[in-house]
Design a binder for these strands. Structure first.
Length: 377
RNA sequence: UGUCCCAUUGUGUAAUGGCAGCACAGCAGAUUUUGGUUCUGUUAGUCUAGGUUCGAAUCCUGGUGGGACAA
């Protein structure tokens, strides 16, 4: 705690000066990250993505989402003040073809996607590395609250020191190549410390900026309306169907399975005297099964699209703590590698295991790896 | 057609002559770089027309609607 913000991370960084491509969102985190790198003597170039055209969707809400056109100008202005080169990279087409199309496709298959995970891997780091190579930058940097560890020739993520802001859950898909070139200047800092740095540098307004939130390409936060507007033949997919109980009996009518997600309680419009939650979605049958909080619990799942970090392979029965959604407590789990996937058995039952969401495995602060949850083979 | 029973917020239920309450649903806010969860706040009701009473969801009479038994 007595470490100054600067020495807190300098020991793990390569000796400056080195060239760094820093992703600037216009928010406080990436801006402070850039400030810290500058003070360390790095040679910076900034880049801001234009991922989605919010203006064309009639939404000009201020300071909403990391990717609004508004924050784009904010980022450019910041970089000008800090005094290094800045590029705007228009990747709307790639973003639409990867992140958004996957988002829609997952919902139409009855799963619940996590677009941030894909975006980090495909867009943020994918494009960052590409651009760093083009510009001849050795490193890339972002304002995430995460750290990087190294062991036996492998790179892995470590949780940010500020556990309440830890963002490793969204970064499990990063490759060894990604990690080997990444700097996280904020990994050793807490959010209040970051705000103070911004304040001390004279950026009072920035220091009080609210957190970005919601899905960045859905500014009004209504993903159901977004699906209806963007998904091809949505009416074909989204038809009223049966709410079932866990015994398979009809207990009501739903508004189309893509409108629901596992664990959902609000918006069911069904009153049974006790809270009911979505416990299963069957896209093929167009049924949505409801159950009590107790019936929401589960003890195992599979993880696919595995990305390993700390170790090259997972020993049979390895004990880890697993996180099945952001801001959830980790749960002790045992891993059993199978062909192309991992079977995950939880020590105790956990709530609402949701197909499509990420599961991330930890060993203390270290990220062992992660995958996408599926329940049935 | 005869007899009996029932009717309270969107739903299910408490209150037996004395401030209509609870759960679920709904709505709003807080939290949150995904969806959801969670927390806090909140809207809304005595089927209808009369009568008894200081006072009626509650007792009496008619009506309406639903159910059961009888045929």
């Amino acid at each position: 705690m007595n470490d100054s913000p600067h020495t807190a991370f300098s020991s793990s960084l390569p000796p400056p000066p080195a060239t760094v491509l820093v992703a600037m969102s216009g928010g406080i985190d990436s801006t402070v990250a850039a400030m810290l790198l500058l003070e360390q003597g790095y040679d910076l170039t900034g880049v801001t993505y234009r991922v989605f055209d919010n203006i064309s969707r009639g939404c000009m809400e201020k300071e909403k989402g990391c990717c609004s056109v508004d924050s784009l100008f904010e980022a450019k202005r910041m970089v000008e003040e800090l005094g290094f080169a800045h590029h705007i990279l228009d990747i709307r087409q790639e973003f639409k073809n990867s992140v958004i199309s996957n988002f829609i496709d997952e919902y139409l298959h009855g799963r619940t996607p996590n677009p941030c995970v894909l975006c980090n891997s495909y867009i943020k780091w994918g494009k960052l590395v590409e651009m760093a190579d083009t510009l001849g930058c050795r490193y890339i940097a972002t304002g995430h609250y995460a750290r990087i560890g190294r062991q036996d020739g492998r790179y892995f993520l470590k949780k940010g020191v500020d556990e309440s802001k830890d963002q490793t859950y969204f970064l499990w898909m990063l490759t060894q190549e990604n990690l080997s070139r990444t700097l996280f200047p904020l990994g050793g800092l807490t959010k209040p410390e970051v705000r103070k740095i911004a304040f001390d540098h004279g950026y009072e307004k920035l220091s009080k900026k609210t957190e970005s939130q919601e899905i960045c390409f859905i500014p009004d936060n209504d993903y159901r309306a977004f699906l209806a507007a963007q998904a091809k033949d949505f009416e074909e997919w989204c038809r009223p169907g049966c709410f079932l109980n866990t015994a398979g009996e009809k207990i009501g009518e739903h508004q189309g399975f893509p409108n629901y997600t596992i664990g959902q309680r609000k918006g069911l419009g069904i009153a049974l005297g006790v809270p009911m939650y979505v416990v299963a979605i069957n896209a093929r049958e167009n049924t949505v099964t409801l159950g009590t909080k107790e019936e929401l619990k589960g003890k195992m799942c599979y993880a696919e699209q595995i990305n390993l970090m700390k170790y090259a392979s997972i020993p049979e029965g390895m004990t880890v703590t697993a996180k099945i959604r952001y801001r959830n407590e980790e749960a002790t789990a045992f891993l059993f590698p199978e062909a192309g996937r991992i079977r995950v058995v939880f020590e105790r039952e956990v709530n609402s295991i949701t197909p499509g969401q990420s599961i991330v495995f930890y060993e203390g602060d270290d990220v062992v790896g992660g995958g996408i949850i599926i329940l049935e083979l």
